[in-house]
Simulated assay, not measured.
Amino acid sequence: MHPTSLMLFAAGFGTRMGDLTRTRPKPLVPVAGRPLIDHALDLCQEAGIAQVVVNTHYLADQVHAHLANRRGIVISHESPDILDTGGGLRHALPWLGPGPVFSLNSDAIWTGANPLAQLLAAWRPEQMDGLLLLVPKTRAHGHANKGDFTLDAAGRLRRGPGAVYSGAQIIRTDRLDTISERAFSLNRLWDLMLTEGRLFGAYHQGCWCDVGHPGGIAQAEELLAGAGDE
């Protein structure tokens, strides 16, 4: 079964952004003259995603107003507490529907091939419960850690220094209800999939920039202008 709906994560507090998110949610921070969330929604539209669910929590009214009257977008508001990625995805299932779904973080900028189209082309439901789009460290801008995963010859993932998880994936949701906590990370599902050899990865064909911190804004704008491409 192939995914047709997407979860766009936009509920976070944006604490790494400092003063930039004191009175404005991170998805509305501008990059190259447009809010981050609009760059993400462009990717969804280009990939032909039929249904996009956006989760909200911090300064949610601003995100709601920005997305008002946009077709194909549903708001999944998290209250009174933020639910993290796993809890947030489970909360949005009534709108996402059954089967695997795309998910995408709203705090990144991409160049090259559409990340969602790449995931769909690589998705093999008979052997995969999750497919993460990764970026080699040489093409991951604004990101300083040692990487998140390595791939074996078949594309199966292992945790450890290597490629950077980009925040884009396809994931099956049927095991979300096995987790008792209300708020939890999707890492919980990934760990189950890793144990069973059903978490896979693919490399993004292009560059990527983390815009979760102030320095990422200038780096992302350089990337979009062509200065950061490799």
Score class of each variant (00 low, 15 high):
Q62E: 13
V63F: 04
V63R: 05
H64D: 02
H64E: 05
H64Q: 07
H64W: 03
A65S: 11
A65K: 12
H66S: 03
H66A: 00
H66M: 01
L67F: 05
L67A: 01
A68G: 02
A68P: 08
N69I: 05
N69M: 03
N69F: 10
R70L: 00
R70S: 01
R70A: 03
R71N: 01
R71G: 01
R71P: 07
G72T: 06
V74R: 04
V74A: 05
V74G: 01
S76R: 07
S76I: 03
S76Y: 14
H77C: 03
E78M: 15
P80F: 15
P80V: 15
P80E: 09
P80N: 05
P80I: 15
P80W: 14
D81Y: 02
D81T: 11
I82C: 13
L83H: 09
L83R: 10
T85C: 02
T85N: 00
T85R: 03
G86A: 11
G87V: 08
G87W: 00
G87C: 11
G88W: 03
G88C: 12
G88P: 06
L89M: 08
L89N: 07
R90A: 10
R90E: 08
R90H: 02
H91T: 06
H91V: 05
H91D: 12
A92W: 02
L93K: 15
L93I: 04
P94I: 13
P94W: 13
P94Q: 09
P94H: 06
W95S: 08
W95T: 08
W95G: 02
L96P: 14
L96H: 14
L96R: 12
G97Q: 00
G97H: 05
G97S: 04
P98K: 12
G99F: 06
G99V: 03
P100Y: 04
P100L: 07
P100E: 13
P100F: 02
V101M: 06
F102V: 05
S103D: 08
S103W: 05
S103K: 07
L104K: 14
L104D: 11
N105E: 13
N105V: 15
S106Q: 08
S106P: 02
S106K: 08
S106N: 09
D107A: 01
I109Y: 11
W110P: 10
W110K: 02
W110D: 07
T111Q: 00
T111A: 00
G112S: 10
N114F: 15
N114L: 15
P115M: 10
L116G: 11
A117W: 15
A117D: 06
A117T: 14
Q118G: 13
L119H: 00
L119N: 01
L119S: 11
L120T: 03
L120I: 00
A121H: 11
A122L: 12
W123Y: 13
W123G: 11
R124H: 13
P125L: 10
E126H: 06
E126P: 01
E126A: 09
E126W: 04
Q127R: 11
M128L: 08
M128P: 09
M128Y: 07
G130Q: 10
G130H: 01
G130K: 09
L131N: 11
L131D: 01
L132R: 05
L133V: 13
